[in-house]
Design a binder for these strands. Structure first.
Length: 658
RNA sequence: GCCGAAGUAGCUCAGGGGUAGAGCAACGCUCUCGUAAAGCGUAGGCCGGCGGUUCGAAUCCGCUCUUCGGCUCCA
């Protein structure tokens, strides 16, 4: 009977008819046995459900395996339940909070009462998890009434689940059980625990119940799991790789920055000579791009009268994350927490005509914010940092084009570093109190950034509730060389500050009008960007950025003069070079240059001196042969000029494309 | 700020109630050397800080500071 049939559309757009009430598993089976074996859950019209639930209505269907995000989500969600089951067996008094999947694994928040769990106990829990997984217990879904659910957890004296259930509607409450463990859960889950072949509990940490500082702090156990042992090993290798790249370690090894807790203070980095070269090179690079695009650079002081921030509304709005004001004469002054208000005053310092708009004011401006001590982290989270800030004052008619220009600039920047970019449009959500400015402006700004993105043919996602308080924004989320995502640059539209600072321009009609402001910062913060670059390149910077570019290694003292001659020539052409004049063997000098990640080594001895050549070693590649000195110079000049990426990055990208 | 872990030489780490250890780095001397570590020697530490227990503490206990992993926050 046709009434009993539903039509399902597969990801490849093919359609198939099925009996109403068929399960996801059966659909998978109808495609292939392998798919059915690997299936973890099924997504129908965007809703992820269990494989054994009957499908009542047609729609878009996707069978989720480990290879899809939904599949991994299901897998890790079930793993969280497995973790809870193991904990329940080992610590019968434990009370469970919530246990969701996350980007890389899962966690469970647990109240262990007076007992403290240390990381030494994790292997035992891990062992129990695998033992339980081997029992291949099925995940059984059960619909329960609200009173039943409340009864169940009241008996267990679990106030957390009771609190959660009280907020749910009767009729939509489900429990999931596997083995001896039952949990309040809306699902979905994998068919049985047997699919979890490998698990690793990675850390234990405190976490407030429902993220509320005033609530009780529960013990959060983090873990990750896989359907194959091999995947776990690969994951652990990747974690090791990330550790090797840690900018805090490399930053110290390579002499990039220093944190001096004793006398300077937490979160206040000291840039060492090597780090300063990298930072200045980045600044020069962006400055050049900005000059080409009509930006004007300005410099503003590090403190200002508090009136400035009261006018912008940042104070007292962000009072908790600012350094306390200080008394100066009869006024209060503050360390500047952002550059924008200063730029607004520069804009407002003269009468502006529509003919001179857009005015684009740029500054590498250092700002100070009071971050909580526990939040500080190397260069990536600090209390004093420099933004590659700029504010573009333009007319409403110019807005879209200016947005496009800033997007284009940001894209060029990340391309230079070999970082693929994902774009996110951050809109406001329904909670209008969180935001300033008129509703109509918001709607207009949101559609402008969307139109600009569309016209540029960008792929983007929309995130509601991620806007800043004064306007919607475009966030650039980059992926580094080992696939991690970082939110970097942003472009923000602002209709609020022009009002607050009463900014105007004289239009063609001879009337005063409000400009619109675009805030933008491709790097975001120089400190954080450098920390990400260090990890992205694993310290092997492109030639143009690297602090020491060429190491000259004379074979013995007899060839020092030739080495000095070459060095002088390279220096004259602007290269950063060093001669290893130490009384060491060649092998040792090479080794030291290699471990400090210097891109080029020039070994010079009798042969080279006689033929006016250099023997060239490239970092990580080794000996690449002997070249006439002049050929070497043109090769490296070109490499630096083109801002070529280190070979390895190029290789990884090429591989990723295939 | 809160939870957990850790602080021993410039770096990486061992030790552990009875005079503080190694490797690398540094410094000195010898070797003048051909593609990832020459040899010998010297120096280097209030075992993060304060207090307690003890005849005696780097070691045990308490507090504190700092760092790391999380939580919260991020204009």
């Amino acid at each position: 009977m046709p009434g009993n049939q539903i039509t399902l559309t597969f990801p490849d757009s093919s359609e198939k008819k099925f009996q109403k009430g068929i399960t996801g598993y059966q659909v998978a089976e109808s495609i292939s046995k392998g798919l059915a074996r690997n299936a973890l859950s099924v997504t129908i019209d965007g809703n992820v459900i269990d494989l054994d639930l009957p499908i009542q209505n047609g729609g878009e269907i996707e069978i989720n395996t480990w290879d899809s995000d939904d599949g991994q989500y299901t897998f890790w969600h079930s793993s969280a339940h497995l973790l809870a089951e193991a904990v329940q067996e080992l610590y019968p008094d434990a009370k469970f909070g919530i246990g969701p999947p996350i980007e890389n694994g899962f966690y469970y928040d647990i109240d262990f009462g007076e007992r403290k769990i240390s990381s030494e106990e994790l292997p035992e829990i891990e062992k129990k998890m695998i033992e339980l997984a081997r029992q291949k217990s099925r995940f059984i879904r059960k619909e329960v009434s609200k009173s039943e659910a409340l009864d169940f957890y009241r008996k267990k004296e679990n106030k957390y689940k009771v609190e959660l259930i009280e907020e749910l509607k009767d009729g939509e409450i489900t429990f999931y059980s596997q083995g001896e463990f039952t949990d309040l859960c809306m699902g979905p889950h994998v068919p049985d625990t047997g699919v979890i072949k490998a698990a690793k509990l990675t850390s234990v940490a405190g976490a407030y119940w429902r993220g509320d500082v005033k609530s009780k702090q529960l013990t959060r156990i983090y873990g990750i799991s896989f359907p194959k042992q091999k995947l776990l090993s690969e994951y652990l290798e990747q974690v090791e790789e990330a550790k090797k790249r840690d900018h805090k370690k490399l930053g110290k090894d390579l002499g990039i920055y220093l944190m001096d807790q004793q006398m300077v203070g937490s979160g206040l980095p000291l840039w060492l000579p090597n780090g300063t070269i990298i930072r200045r090179k980045l600044e020069e690079y962006l400055r050049q791009l900005q000059v080409e695009r009509g930006y004007q650079e300005v410099i503003t002081p590090h403190i200002a009268n508090i009136k400035l921030y009261e006018t912008s509304g940042h104070y007292p709005y962000y009072k908790d994350s600012q350094f306390n004001p200080m008394k100066v004469d009869d006024d209060e002054y503050m360390l500047k927490p952002m550059n924008c208000p200063h730029h607004h005053r520069i804009y407002d310092s003269q009468l502006r005509s529509y003919r001179e708009l857009p005015v684009r004011l740029a500054e590498f401006g250092t700002v100070y914010r009071y971050e909580q001590s526990g939040e500080l982290n190397g260069l990536s989270r600090v209390r004093g940092f420099t933004q590659d800030d700029a504010h573009i004052y333009c007319t409403h008619d110019q807005l879209k084009q200016e947005i496009k220009n800033t997007i284009e600039l940001t894209q060029i920047v990340f391309e230079t570093f070999g970082m693929p970019v994902d774009i996110r449009l951050s809109y406001r959500d329904e909670n209008e109190d969180k935001y300033g400015g008129k509703s109509e402006f918001w709607d207009r700004a949101q559609s402008e950034i969307r139109e600009a993105s569309d016209e540029m043919g960008l792929n983007y996602t929309i995130a509601r509730g991620e806007a800043s308080f004064y306007g919607p924004k475009i966030d650039f989320i980059i992926r580094d060389a080992i696939g991690r995502k970082w939110q970097l640059g942003t472009v923000q539209v602002d209709y609020v500050m022009p009002e607050r600072f009463d900014l105007t321009y004289v239009g063609a009609d001879n009337d005063k009008h409000r400009p619109v402001i675009i805030h933008r910062a491709p790097f975001g913060s120089m400190e954080r960007f450098v920390s990400i670059l260090i990890e992205h390149f694993a310290g092997d910077f492109p030639l143009w950025l690297t602090p020491l570019q060429i190491q000259l290694i004379p074979v013995s003292d007899d060839y020092l003069s030739y080495a000095r001659k070459c060095a002088k020539e390279l220096q004259n052409r602007g290269f950063r070079i060093d001669i290893d004049e130490r009384n060491e063997q060649v092998g040792a000098k090479i080794r030291d240059a290699e471990t400090t990640k210097i891109p080029y080594m020039l070994i010079v001895g009798e042969k080279e001196e006689n033929n006016n050549t250099v023997s060239v070693r490239r970092h990580k590649l080794g000996d690449i042969g002997t070249f006439p000195f002049s050929d070497f110079i043109s090769k490296v000049e070109q490499e630096a000029e083109n801002k070529d990426l280190p070979t390895e990055i190029l290789t990884e990208q090429t591989l990723n494309k295939n």
